[in-house]
Write a protein that binds this DNA or RNA. Structure first.
Lengths: 216, 216
DNA sequence: AACAGAATAGGACAGCCATCCTAATTGCGA
DNA sequence: TCGCAATTAGGATGGCTGTCCTATTCTGTT
């Protein structure tokens, strides 16, 4: 759901203008922090230090900025998952890595919730055309998790297990955002990892051990 | 999180004016369906068939309507929980009842998510003063669930277990809203009830066994 | 019937917003 | 250096929103 920040230059290679990339980056952050509807052109303009009217050279509407933001998020998440596959040799380790995101990004999550879940929820309420694309963000993780469970030999249940892990992340994120309770996040991550170990086959792993292994 | 509808007259006894109650009722529904920010006075006015300017006889701002809506929701949820305590003899049965809400109200949840979770998420993004009260809605369920687990003899873990059940409901609601997958809801409810049975002591959903143990 | 206060209607207002338009500036190839 | 296209600035515009104000209608009491 969440993702490390990638530099503007990297994005720029794909999308053309530097200004355009900076607009997308600023919009991404502001949409996450304050929501899509509540973020005005003026706010993005202040952030990018660009004239309001100038947006329309790069985008022809606010909706189009949203599309670009979602595309950027999809790209960033895909890149993150590929990185995980390079780092983690086992599917179980990769899933654990996903579970640990709510801990890794706990500061942002407590402040603003899950970028994927909150955007999807908002666009659903607005009955916005981009809702379909936002759901695509969820699908990226769903498909990836499904693959990992299939690799663990649970092909028949793979999708159900993937959805269960996604539900975990959304539940934790929503409550962490509401209550700002860090211990709660730790407990739920531990519980989820315990649950996962029944599917990976190896013995249960303590959170600290997993972190130590990840940093090794 | 969700709640049966109570008639206007019932609410009216407490709050005074009939028109006021109708405004709150309409606002409650519209805030749920389209979000607080995206719901305009005009939309509520159309629903209640009342003049725009007339709102300010009953409320002195939109924020005040939100406060009234949250108060109404708290009242309705409290009433629902009291009803459950009258209906269900065992704490385990009551918790199961809570778990089943996502199934009972699956239509609304698939369309608009959880009324408590989505409101809290939105108000957090808006940095709205009423966020505190919206969190209070969560607290109503948290405290109640904690009580039920304590009655089951798990006082030490009661709050953690309550939070776990809340996280379940939020995760399922968010994904049900995104994917409109009814089977997913069923699976997760079943999984959660299985999990719960480890704390109620009985093998399956036998109410009398749970009752006997609770009274022991 | 007369009056008072509650309740309602509907227009007026200022502020914010996304969008559009046009002029100015920049950067780059010839 | 010139010229053209890409890029930017910033004001103008119209629509929507929450809020306010005042005139009117309703309701119950004397």
């Amino acid at each position: 759901m969440w993702c490390e920040v990638f530099s503007i230059e990297e994005v720029n290679v794909v999308s053309g203008s530097v200004t355009r990339a900076r607009i997308v980056e600023a919009a991404d952050e502001l949409f996450y922090q304050h929501g899509y509807e509540h973020t005005s052109f003026a706010a993005i303009a202040d952030e990018v230090r660009i004239s309001r009217g100038n947006f329309y050279y790069h985008f022809k509407s606010k909706d189009e900025i949203l599309d670009a933001v979602i595309d950027a998020r999809v790209g960033a998440r895909r890149a993150m998952l590929e990185q995980w596959e390079a780092d983690e040799p086992t599917p179980g380790g990769r899933i654990r890595r996903f579970i640990h995101i709510v801990l890794t990004n706990r500061a942002d999550i407590q402040n603003h919730g899950c970028p994927v879940g909150t955007l999807t929820t908002e666009l659903a309420k607005l009955d916005h055309a981009a809702l379909k694309d936002a759901k695509g963000l969820f699908e990226v993780f769903r498909v990836w998790l499904r693959e990992q469970f299939a690799l663990l030999g649970h092909e028949a249940q793979a999708d159900a297990l993937a959805m269960h892990v996604l539900a975990f992340s959304q539940g934790v994120a929503t409550l962490a955002n509401a209550f700002h309770d860090e211990e709660f996040i730790c407990r739920e991550v531990q519980r989820m990892c315990d649950w996962l170990s029944a599917y990976t086959g190896d013995a249960e792993q303590d959170v600290r051990d997993a972190d130590a292994q990840a940093n090794a």
